[in-house]
């Protein structure tokens, strides 16, 4: 808040030039007919997403080459505001030439980023982010049709906001990808909760299975748990005993079999805690003992592997 928020109503000033240009001259607008698709030996996929009553609807056309699974031709039609039309246009462009599997990985952020004039400046203001989320949903719908399944099966989830047709998986993904912290942000990004508001919290005029406040709380908790787990998994955060066990296990699994295949071997003699670093004292056995490269090339190789797999704060010393 502050100086920049005191004069409102400048919504369109926050659109990138690319958004304006694609609204005025969409490149990939139009329909693809069965005949068009057949003429190029491709299969036609037509996917619809959104609804007029929600303010945004998009129809995506793909011509897919079934041998390569590549999207060889694409186009769209859209009922929506300028950013919805521009996002749909860019979304089609991002699909072209990709396989169906690759296209499924395109997210709303890819669409929004592709519409930026400058990499550091969002292409649309936050309350228009839902337009790019919709472009992302329609791709999933197209993939579902291509695979002969339904989108819910792909999402493996349920609908949270019927008004805006936003599923539990979309909401969770959007929270994770964009690190969202408030229900208002979820509404800005997905439009969930923007209409009848029943899905925001209990007590609205419709009883729901899922509420945004709970989904946000649970997803944030999951994210925090994962972060803690990830932190805990880090070598640096282990006890000396655990570190020693990890080093021994790594040697047994990765290093020793390699040397054994050349008739040699290596033993860990000791591990010394030197404060910032660990000194790993090793002794060669068999063919390695006295080998010319054992104190140079092989040693650097072992140290490199240890740094990569465990930590770069381990020095390997021959004793």
């Amino acid at each position: 808040m502050g100086k920049n928020d005191l004069i409102g109503g400048s919504l369109w000033d926050h659109y990138s030039n690319k958004v304006a240009d694609r609204m005025n001259n969409p490149r990939n607008l139009g329909e693809i007919s069965e005949e068009d698709a057949k003429a190029i030996g491709a299969r036609l996929i037509v996917a619809d997403w959104g609804a007029e009553s929600c303010g945004d609807a998009v129809r995506l056309y793909w011509a897919v080459d079934e041998k390569t699974e590549k999207i060889v031709k694409g186009s769209f039609k859209s009922f929506g505001c300028g950013t919805a039309i521009a996002s749909s246009d860019m979304m089609v462009e991002l699909c072209l030439g990709k396989t169906v599997e690759e296209a499924m990985k395109i997210t709303n952020l890819d669409v929004e980023k592709a519409l930026r004039d400058n990499p550091d400046e969002p292409a649309v203001p936050p309350q228009k982010m839902h337009c790019s989320v919709m472009a992302y949903d329609v791709i999933k719908q197209a993939v579902a049709i291509y695979k002969g399944t339904d989108k819910e099966a792909l999402d493996n989830q349920e609908m949270v906001c019927e008004c805006a047709q936003v599923t539990l998986s979309t909401i969770k993904e959007v929270i994770r990808i964009n690190n969202l912290k408030t229900v208002e942000e979820i509404t800005e990004y997905t439009k969930a909760g923007a209409f009848c508001k029943s899905c925001i919290k209990p007590g609205g005029h419709e009883e729901k299975k899922y509420y945004l406040v709970d989904i946000l709380k649970e997803t944030r908790a999951e994210m925090e748990l994962e972060r803690e787990k990830e932190e805990a998994e880090k070598f640096e955060n282990k006890s000396f005993f655990q570190k020693s066990k990890m080093i021994q296990a790594f040697f047994d699994a990765e290093i020793r079999p390699m040397l054994q295949s050349d008739g040699g071997d290596i033993d860990i003699v000791d591990i010394i805690d030197k404060g910032d670093t660990l000194e790993l004292q090793v002794r060669y056995q068999g063919a390695c003992h006295g080998c010319a490269s054992s104190t140079a090339g092989t040693l650097y190789f072992i140290e490199g592997k240890v740094h990569e797999a465990l930590s770069d704060k381990i020095d390997v010393a021959i004793v």
């Binding site: 609804a51 007029e52 009553s53 929600c54 303010g55 309350q127 509404t187 923007a194 209409f195």
Partner: peptide, 22 residues
């Protein structure tokens, strides 16, 4: 309310077909 994403309150109050509310 031009930055408001919600459907037009007057349309809703007048029971205009939801498909026309935007």
């Amino acid at each position: 309310s031009s930055e408001d994403l919600e459907a037009d309150a007057t349309f809703q109050a007048m029971h205009v077909d939801a498909d026309l509310s935007h």
